[in-house]
């Protein structure tokens, strides 16, 4: 589904990714771990197409498309979803309105009819249950005055609405208490299927108790320096990132 080869990316002439390789197939969950400043969030942003970052070398192939040729909104319509570390506030725009615009534009790009109000509401009701989110919250300006937990649940709600092929969760666990973490993880697990894939970017092993990855990669200094299964995360938790540094 996703194949990243020798990816180099920089922001304002500072090199952040320095030859990253990653392959993700359908049905898989990959965790990307690493210390602060290793380039985890940069990787997420580059896949989503954030233009602040310059890709200086390498390729990203997604479903046989060269991603560098697609704009961020085209990537999204192809099925890439990024759950933001810091979800953005848009005053005066409700989540409902935001999602209606998004869902219908994605449908339009596939040649499908837009959902009418009744159909949309039905879809929304169904997906709301997944992350235990209330209608009242979705009628408010998106992310404005939301608690940390509400913001992250709202991200997963949007993910459920858009039903992406590849979901990237960027530090979704940050700022969550244990109850919210369970709700969010439960939502993500329910959405897992053999037809989609998930990349979980995280600092801590904690989230991986709930969203169990098939692969764990350690990102350091712009490269993946070690890959393994879920036990690698446990080992990291125990020994710290220095353990890998020393080994290398």
């Amino acid at each position: 589904m996703l194949e990243i080869k020798n990816l180099h990316a920089s922001i304002d002439d500072t090199k952040i990714l320095k030859g990253l390789n990653l392959k993700v197939s359908t049905g898989e969950v990959h965790a990307i771990m690493g210390p602060n400043g290793s380039g985890k969030s940069t990787l997420a942003s580059v896949i989503a197409g954030r233009e602040d970052y310059d890709v200086t070398e390498g390729k990203i192939d997604f479903m046989n498309n060269e991603l560098s040729e697609l704009s961020p909104d085209e990537r999204a319509r192809e099925g890439i979803f990024l759950a933001f570390q810091y979800p953005v506030e848009i005053p005066g725009v409700s989540t409902t309105n935001f999602m209606k615009t998004a869902v219908n534009q994605v449908r339009k790009s596939k040649g499908e009819k837009p959902l009418d109000a009744v159909e949309f509401l039905k879809l929304m009701k169904e997906k709301m249950k997944l992350v235990n989110i209330k209608q009242e919250l979705l009628s408010r300006s998106i992310n404005e005055g939301f608690s940390g937990g509400e913001k992250k649940r709202n991200e997963i709600f949007q993910m459920a609405m858009l039903n992406p092929k590849l979901s990237i969760l960027d530090e979704t666990d940050s700022g969550l208490d244990i109850d919210a973490l369970k709700i969010v993880s439960n939502g993500v697990n329910t959405l897992r299927s053999k037809d989609n894939a998930t990349i979980v970017v995280t600092h801590y092993q904690r989230l991986l108790n709930y969203i169990v990855p098939d692969f764990v990669h350690v990102l350091m200094d712009g490269k993946i320096v070690k890959s393994g299964d879920k036990n690698l995360a446990l080992e990291l938790e125990e020994k710290g990132y220095d353990w890998i540094k020393v080994k290398n």
Binding site: A48, G49, R50, S71, P72, D73, A76, R77, F81, L82, F84, P87, V88, I90, P91, G92, V93, N97, F98, M99, T101, A102, Q105, V106, S109, S141, Q158, L162
Partner: peptide, 20 residues
């Protein structure tokens, strides 16, 4: 960028933000 990442194109994104 938040709008774009959800598949909304730039013109609609601006319309959405301004109307909000």
């Amino acid at each position: 960028f938040y709008c774009l990442q959800r598949g909304i194109d730039e013109e609609n994104a601006i319309a959405l933000i301004v109307n909000g």
